[in-house]
Computed example of a mutant assay.
Amino acid sequence: MNPKLSATRLALASVALALWLPAQAQNVAIVNGKPVPKARVDTLLQQATRGGQQPVTPELEARAREEVVLREIFTQEAERRGIAQGAAYKAQMELARQTILIRELFADWQKNHPVTEAEARAEYDKFKAQASGTEYRARHILVAAEDEAKKLIAQIKGGASFDELAKKHSTDTGSAANGGDLDFAKPDAYVAEFGQALARLQKGQMTDAPVKTQFGWHIIRLEDTRDAQFPAFDDVRPQIEQQIGQVKMQQYQQSLRDKAKTDFKFGQ
């Protein structure tokens, strides 16, 4: 054998191998002679972890690799049978195309229009101003009949324990176990009759007469008052930003709808 020819063939084989290895690194597998690119795995993982809902783990990546290979196997069979030429397939593909485009449009808009700290703080300050005022810590006993409520008031005035009577007689199971304790809340958090009666009480004072609401007859005692509490900005910032982002997105969508020229009448 010609030594020069052997060296040439060896060099060509080395070049071919060098070109083949990077190509193989970009593919997950070969299915019936057709390569399955690794980019499909990356795209599937991006979809699965969109928004940071779950991290990319070796197990998740392994499932993604299996998924793209299975998809290629099934897709090749569908194409072999001519399904891609059917009207139903084409109609669904158009809907899928629109869905992907719309999703990416909104994702791109959100990326370029993030909620600023100033916007979040302004909304926080508005909520905080609305929540300002006085909170009242009340206990109550709820019963079905006015006469029963009057008897319990008499017993309490005679020295009976409000807490024990609440545990024994109150039909409000949520607070009865805690001696009728309702914790701190603003009067407007309750039905009007209850809130108004509560706001007229002094600390330690109990209603002299039962208070009727849609739920029955209440005996109310005011335990304490305090300035309304509100969480720190950093504690609620994610929720505020999410809410503002949703509003801004709705406004963006509405602006596109308003600018569009169409004879369609929405809401009909």
Rank of each mutant, 00 (worst) to 15 (best):
T8M: 06
Q53E: 11
R9T: 09
K38H: 10
W20L: 14
A64G: 00
A48R: 00
L45E: 05
R40A: 11
V28A: 11
L12V: 10
P22G: 14
D42N: 06
L21C: 07
D42V: 02
T8E: 12
K34N: 13
A62H: 11
A29D: 15
Q46W: 00
E59R: 12
R40Q: 09
T57N: 00
R65V: 02
E66Y: 00
P37K: 12
Q26H: 13
G52A: 02
E66M: 11
I73S: 08
G33I: 07
I73R: 06
Q53Y: 04
T57Q: 01
N27T: 14
N2T: 15
K38E: 11
A29M: 07
L12T: 09
K38W: 13
L19N: 02
V36C: 05
N2V: 10
V15K: 04
Q24N: 12
I73E: 00
Q24S: 13
I73V: 15
V69Y: 04
I30N: 11
L70Q: 07
A13S: 06
N2G: 15
T75H: 10
K4S: 13
A39L: 08
G52F: 00
A18P: 01
S14D: 03
F74D: 07
D42R: 01
N2L: 09
S6C: 09
P3S: 15
A7L: 12
T8D: 13
L70W: 07
R50F: 10
L45A: 11
I73N: 10
E61P: 05
W20M: 07
Q46H: 01
E72N: 02
Q46F: 00
A23I: 06
A25W: 10
V36S: 03
Q24I: 02
Q47C: 02
A62N: 07
A18I: 06
P22F: 02
I30H: 09
L5W: 12
A16L: 12
L44P: 03
Q26I: 12
